[in-house]
Write a protein that binds this DNA or RNA. Structure first.
Lengths: 340, 340
DNA sequence: TTGAAAGCGCTAACAC
DNA sequence: GTGTTAGCGCTTTCAA
């Protein structure tokens, strides 16, 4: 391994001068600068980042932590990160945390101690609270996207899920639906609770009762939505909802596939509206484009790097919060209720 | 920032002892170990990885470098990486290199100088040659997946593209096709050349001439395949191929969409076989499941981490090469030629 | 403009 | 079993 020392010796200068050259300080005479640069090239020298981080007390990197890097839900979010990473001075590195707390903690600990200057965390788990609180207590810069902790004052990017869900339900009601089922997700996730509230608030506003079986609870096994949808469709037409609000598109695909498996079709026999505007599905879905509420994941990914950079440079006062609005993207899964 | 020194002082021991405790060396008395661990917890101490890497001369991390982390093609590859990352002692970090050479070099340089102990590179560009050669010359451990450099002796995971392409064309021929068009990709990529050769070899083996317009050259703009397919289908039935071998599934989707846009259907009017068995598409494709040649990306991702770990531990003799076989996955885009 | 020297936080070799 | 010491490769005072 070539070091500053060796370069210095070869170039007949001190290590300090070599350091000045590689950091393009201006107080180096042109002749020496050139000589050192030639030696650096000749010797194939590259500065060691561990050593540099150690003395500078900053690593020159920002880390992005997701639960699954491969998940198609993250498609646009990652595109956003990549987009601003390409413009950033700092290197951006990604990590898949998985769900196991031990690994999550290990990675966060790894990245926040000499590897990166700041981290971005998407979709924290409730069990992440201790480590988040630790980061806050030691003043390590971080940004949460769709944070789960209402009460901690942190830098965060949020989505107006409440309003988005309201729009979804209003959209169905405007098309004549009165009995609307909710396919609810894991209530341990704040986003789901917010969307849930949007649904109930609009239903109440119009005075439409929510039937006893009109809320289906789907946890992490989304395929349960398939069965629940089939069950629902086996009721006589007058005894079942005419529309479904799925808490996310991934559940919507299961609902639609379940409906179709019985020979029914969407939206003729059942309207379905989802959330996320996810376009890529790993469950083999190939049905109609889902009418959905889009959250601006690309922008959020993009913004998060620049915002965190500004935070690192003290250009923004913390804790920083920004809330993004959603947008209804019409697809082919919502129609008026059939008049059979 | 809490350091070993401070912990040592609080626990009334030397820094060396603290180091022994955090590295779970066995030559520490139980009482002292416990005392130190309590102090570590109380003070919220975490070891600094930059300092540790510096002195240990290893970073405890493996980096995976892809051009686009978001690309759905990488779905199973990333799943593979994640799968073995969860079992690995080392942290696994991911980076999106992009195409710009300056960024690619910067990232590789960053990661290979104190940040990670080894890197995995998928789909090197021809222009990556200098940096690859540099890594080889300084003996930095790395592994290439679908390497583009035939002549460099490096650790690599390869796919038998030649055989896969042959199987694809044989599959069409077995179903009665005689005139088979090739939608070729960028000839600067080795995989495409290999698949090209598979196509020509089989065609020659059977003595089926390749028509003058039967090879369509599609470069990075895959939507060109859409137009080329339309053009092809506008010929009279007897003057056009009955089947297409698309060099990858992403091009196959464009071909199919082009064919469909003219009111034709696949496979009735044209059979299409692809390569990659990619299931997620970001171009809005929602047609029939594409008959395709699968490369075992999940296994390759998974294996690459363990192989690289073995290389780091000297358990494997280098340069290491493994070639993966492909598998034909039947879909709904190949049929016998229509007898119109 | 340049060099000498100290030190970032940690580990490892060597004493004891 | 524990402490002392040196030093990983780099940057950054400070003095010249």
């Amino acid at each position: 391994m070539v070091t500053v020392k060796e370069v210095a010796r070869m170039a007949n200068v001190s290590p300090a001068t070599v350091s000045r050259v590689i950091n393009s300080a201006h107080n180096v005479s042109p002749e020496i600068r050139e000589r050192v640069q030639r030696v650096i090239k000749d010797m194939n020298y590259f500065p060691n980042h561990a050593a540099r981080s150690l003395v500078r007390r900053q690593a020159g990197a920002i880390a992005v932590l997701l639960r699954n890097l491969h998940h198609p839900f993250f498609f646009n979010l990652i595109r956003g990160f990549e987009d601003s990473a390409a413009k950033s001075e700092r290197s951006v590195i990604f990590c898949s945390l998985g769900q196991e707390q031990e690994y999550r903690d290990r990675y966060i600990q790894f990245l926040t101690n000499g590897i990166s200057d700041a981290i971005i965390l998407y979709g924290t788990l409730f069990t992440d609270r201790p480590i988040i609180e630790h980061l806050a207590s030691v003043n390590f810069p971080f940004l949460l996207i769709e944070n789960n902790f209402e009460d901690i004052r942190v830098n965060q990017l949020l989505v107006n899920n409440l309003e988005g869900a309201k729009n979804a339900v209003e959209h169905l009601i405007a098309r004549g639906h009165r009995r609307i089922a909710l396919f609810m997700g894991d209530p341990n996730k704040k986003v789901n609770l917010e969307r849930f509230n949007g649904y109930t608030q609009v239903m109440q506003k119009y005075g439409f009762p929510i039937g006893q079986n009109d809320i289906k609870n789907i946890y992490s096994d989304y395929s349960a939505a398939y069965g629940a949808a089939r069950e629902m469709m086996q009721l006589p037409p007058e005894a079942r909802p005419t529309a479904v609000f799925a808490i996310n598109d991934r559940i919507a695909t299961q609902v639609i596939m379940g409906v179709q498996s019985l020979g029914f079709s969407v939206p003729e026999d059942l309207s379905v509206i989802g959330f996320d505007n996810q376009k890529l599905f790993d469950d083999g879905y190939s049905g109609p484009a889902i009418t959905s509420i889009k959250q601006p994941l690309f922008e959020m990914g993009k913004d998060s790097i620049t915002i965190l950079t500004d935070i690192l440079e003290g250009k923004v006062k913390t804790p920083f919060t920004k809330t993004y609005e959603t947008q209804l993207i019409p697809g082919d899964t919502v129609d008026e209720p059939s008049r059979k």
